[in-house]
Design a protein around this nucleic acid. Structure first.
Lengths: 237, 237
DNA sequence: GAGTGGTCTAGACCACATG
DNA sequence: ATGTGGTCTAGACCACTCG
């Protein structure tokens, strides 16, 4: 399962992060890379496309692929959504507390569902504690017709690992919506927030590769600790 | 300047939004589309890649390209950053008020610059009023060595239009950082917010195609009106 | 003019889904 | 067995940059 353009992508990421290719310099040309990796130019270009998407390089026509990475004006990291995903990259002494685990249905108003829909689901509420501070409340609704049962041990560990490694479900795509809302009384208590605090609500819907609806999520983040960074290219469409 | 894969992309977007291809159904196969548009399959695939990126379709191996768009569980719109970009898509009775326009240097602490750097820039502060409500304060610092002068008329209209159409500058790429912070006294007054309000700060850096640093921006959004939606595919890298 | 990235092609083989 | 998308190739022509 080793796709060539992914191998090239990973190798280039490694060489950039290890500064074998330094920021401010140009990568070898596409033809040179093709020769280097024994690949066609289009395949190299696929790898470079991934580097572009993730903010590692910027391409300049007629000149080459400029390494960005550690540019002095660049913001720290690209494409991460809050601490939940930060945890997996850095060591942050993260703890997870399972607060609730029960059978219910997906709350209709929260996710803009039609009034008459009843979607049976396992409700999991978890508190994410980073460096001793309660930072995030994850509220997950996992549809029962896809995942019949979820144990406390699985909730404590990782839902995604359970889905992918044990159940062999393949995550496909999803959408997320970020808004800032006043904290509810319950959220204030759990996150130990002062009165009139705001939280960042990240609502998400996740589908499997085969388009099956899997999961609804609302993550409640302490607003003062929330950060989202995005790298964008000018879209010419 | 009509790139084939863009033409195909635009045509497919049109047909999806006009429901000639309805959500829940599959697009014609890649081979059929190639024949339809008189293009090679790889070119069609480039167009489909754009549709994928923008959340219009989901591809399933062995089956086809599933149209999403108006799926009943999908969130409304993908890839937009708040009202600033919403305005350009919908008619929203938007007004812009130029509050300040002056020569300064880019504030060092705000954008994590090194202490000894002095970047001369034109500072523009603008208030965005949507449907009579003051929603966003845009603070732009446009580097003087790239754009020597900006008139009030230009600030009132659109900086980007001026950069691209009049000065023929090509926007390349940028990064954005979203955080939630307490409103300053000045922001509270301008946005007419109650005490102890929070705002969403979107800090951005914009580069030109040739990698020249163009602009620093901090947009201050009313937190209760801010929304950001993202479509994500499972990344297999 | 030589080198670069941007686009496009016509073919090939594979893994997967479906009947 | 057929059709689908996923990957890869070897070549072509273009627009751009730079000496």
């Amino acid at each position: 399962m080793a796709k060539k353009h992914e191998m090239i992508y990973r190798d280039l990421v490694r060489k950039i992060t290890h500064q074998l290719y330094q920021s401010g310099t140009f990568l070898p040309s596409e033809n040179e890379l093709a020769a280097l990796y024994g690949a066609s130019r289009e395949t190299v270009r696929k790898a470079l496309g991934s580097l572009l998407e993730n903010g590692f390089i910027h391409k300049i026509k007629g000149k080459g692929s400029l390494v960005l990475g550690l540019d002095k004006y660049a913001f720290p990291i690209s494409g991460l959504t809050s601490y939940r995903e930060l945890d997996s990259l850095f060591d942050m002494h993260t703890d997870t507390q399972v607060l609730q685990l029960a059978q219910t249905t997906v709350p209709q108003t929260l996710f803009h569902l039609e009034a008459d829909e009843e979607l049976p689901a396992t409700y999991i509420q978890r508190l994410r504690i980073v460096n001793g501070e309660p930072l995030v409340i994850d509220n997950d609704y996992v549809l029962t017709n896809v995942v019949p049962h979820i144990s406390k041990g699985v909730a404590q560990d990782s839902l995604y690992r359970y889905f992918e490694e044990t159940l062999n479900l393949e995550i496909g795509y999803g959408s997320k919506e970020f808004t800032v809302v006043p904290a509810t009384e319950g959220q204030r208590q759990i996150l130990k927030l002062p009165p009139n605090s705001s939280v960042v609500s990240v609502k998400g819907i996740t589908h499997l590769q085969d388009n099956t609806l899997l999961q609804f999520t609302e993550s409640i983040h302490r607003a003062d600790k929330f950060k989202f960074i995005e790298h964008a290219r000018r879209k010419m469409l």
